[in-house]
């Protein structure tokens, strides 16, 4: 389940996704955006999230695509007029800018698919707990209640059918009212029980002093190394960007894309940043595959068809 990049310390994942988000918003150079997008797709595929990606894709394409269409319709700045639509000039700059923003949005959407897989709520809360312990506690408690309440709601739905409260029957008005009655039963019951939860918290010393945090995550040397590497390779493009490299100026007049030595350094460093996690995932996959092939060829024979009784005796 949890291996490769996903098994690493939460700080690593958070740094990576925060960095990607930052780059997506800052660096509008199409090469960088496309690289980031490709890196993310590679990571998603290596993480086995291809299905998730496909499921969300129509919505993402619609959202991002609409940006590409809307921008030239409403923004008429730019020097290169392509044609007129309803007496409004459609400029090359606006079209390009719309396309760039489409890439940005797509990157952000894909980024969150991978984020949802890698940085589980547990990890997010771990990172969060240091800054806002009470909020984190509150959120964790709410997270604990959700599956409990879902189960209770199912039970309530089943039983209340006996007294005619049924969301599957009757007019829409009655059904919605019944749905709310079910929620009310859940509310009353859960609030009543919540008081016991409160007691149990108090009995275990909640509120007598500042809480410490127990962590199941340990930072090992690999975490530290990757953290350092991500930090360095992320910092270089950021600094260069502040120096004005890698900028792609469209408005008010499109400037040609420049790709000098500065951009080259920036791009290499950026690639390193983007590709470290896919690399880690890939290494893991390769490791398992090769270990299955080489290390224990005799221990786990694949059962095929008829099984010979004599093999354990040999």
């Amino acid at each position: 389940m949890s291996s490769g990049f996903r098994a690493m310390h939460p700080a690593v994942g958070l740094l990576y996704y925060a960095g990607l988000l930052l780059f997506a918003a800052l660096i509008t150079h199409p090469l960088f955006l496309i690289t980031e997008l490709a890196g993310l797709i590679l990571l998603l595929l290596l993480q086995g999230q291809g299905r998730q990606l496909l499921r969300g894709l129509p919505f993402y394409l619609l959202m991002a695509g609409s940006v590409a269409v809307l921008n030239p319709l409403f923004s008429h700045r730019g020097a290169h007029i392509l044609f007129y639509l309803w007496d409004q000039p459609i400029t090359l700059e606006a079209v390009l800018y719309g396309l760039i923003m489409m890439l940005v949005l797509l990157t952000i959407f894909l980024l969150f698919i991978s984020y949802n897989y890698t940085v589980t709520t547990d990890k997010f809360m771990y990172a969060f707990a240091a800054a806002a312990p009470k909020t984190a506690l509150l959120t964790l408690m709410a997270i604990r209640f959700v599956p409990l309440f879902q189960r209770r709601l199912r039970e309530i739905t089943l039983i209340q059918r006996f007294r005619g409260i049924d969301v599957g029957e009757g007019s829409l008005r009655k059904r919605m009212r019944d749905g709310m009655t079910l929620l009310k039963v859940l509310l009353t019951w859960s609030l009543e029980e919540a008081l016991q939860t409160g007691d149990s918290m108090k009995a275990r010393g909640y509120g007598i002093r500042r809480r410490s945090t127990y962590s199941i995550y340990k930072m090992d040397w690999l975490d530290k190394a990757v953290l350092l590497l991500l930090g360095l390779s992320g910092l270089i493009p950021l600094i260069l960007w502040l120096q004005g490299y890698g900028a792609f100026e469209i408005y008010p007049r499109m400037k040609p894309l420049v790709f000098g030595s500065g951009e080259a350094v920036m791009y290499i460093s950026f690639c390193l940043f983007v590709l470290i996690p896919p690399g880690l995932e890939g290494k893991e996959i390769w490791l398992w595959r090769s270990s299955r092939r080489k290390a224990y060829p005799s221990v786990t024979p694949e059962p095929n068809g008829t099984r010979s009784m004599s093999s354990p005796l040999r």
């Binding site: 009470k134 506690l137 509150l138 408690m141 709410a142 997270i143 604990r144 209640f145 959700v146 309440f149 879902q150 709601l153 929620l183 859940l186 509310l187 859960s190 609030l191 919540a194 008081l195 939860t197 409160g198 007691d199 918290m201 108090k202 909640y206 509120g207």
Partner: peptide, 18 residues
Amino acid sequence: LESRELVLLAVLSAIAAV
């Protein structure tokens, strides 16, 4: 925050989420 108040907030948030 009293523990009961914290639980109350958590319950209401969770019910809204559910």
